[in-house]
């Protein structure tokens, strides 16, 4: 007997091809809704650290597309983990797996409904992992998710992680995006 998950999840893969528009590079890989099917998928696909630069994995609840424009994302934001180049070898895969386990195991107590999904961006200049939540105004939910996530990743107190609204990320580039919350 398989162990059912609370939610059905969809894994997406993005491969950068500059000759195509962003959405054309995004592929739905598969959906799953049991613990066993999650592991069958995870054990079968490439580790994030072995992906080519420019690639992303996204895991979202069924029905939510991994983009700002989706109705369930557009008022939301993300807890962002930025990694140095050195961390790819040591921590990228470990952090991403922990992120996935937080999502499928429903790790955020009363606030799991606020979680939309998670994204990992593999980039030469530095990798990023983020958990996306649905509403930047749900302060209690956002903060609880951020604190729990930081604990689960085993990040020390001195490391501060920030939460950014997608609306700000979409209109400002890189360093201009301000944190709405930090934990």
């Amino acid at each position: 007997m398989k162990h059912p998950l609370q939610n059905r999840w969809t894994l997406w893969f993005y491969k950068n091809d500059k000759t195509k528009p962003w959405q054309a590079n995004l592929r739905l890989v598969t959906k799953f809704d049991t613990v066993e099917d999650f592991w069958a998928l995870y054990n079968h696909i490439q580790l994030a650290s072995r992906l080519m630069s420019g690639c992303d994995y996204s895991l979202f609840k069924d029905g939510i597309e991994p983009m700002w424009e989706d109705n369930r994302n557009k008022c939301g934001g993300r807890w962002l983990i930025t990694l140095s180049k050195q961390q790819r070898m040591l921590e990228l895969d470990q952090f991403w797996l922990e992120t996935l386990l937080c999502l499928i195991g429903e790790a955020f107590d009363d606030y799991n409904n606020d979680v939309c999904g998670a994204v990992i961006n593999v980039r030469a200049k530095g990798d990023k992992i983020a958990i996306w939540t649905r509403d930047t105004e749900n302060q209690k939910a956002v903060l609880h998710i951020g604190k729990t996530y930081k604990e689960r990743l085993g990040l020390p107190m001195r490391i501060v992680i920030g939460y950014q609204a997608h609306a700000d990320t979409a209109t400002k580039s890189g360093f201009g995006v301000k944190n709405k919350f930090v934990v």
Binding site: Q6, V35, E36, W39, L101, I104, G105, E106, A107, N112
Partner: peptide
């Protein structure tokens, strides 16, 4: 209703079970 919650330990134990 009740939520189906799995902790890290349980999920990891399922990784290699047949």
């Amino acid at each position: 209703g009740t939520r189906i919650i799995y902790d890290r330990k349980f999920l990891m134990e399922c990784r290699n079970s047949p």
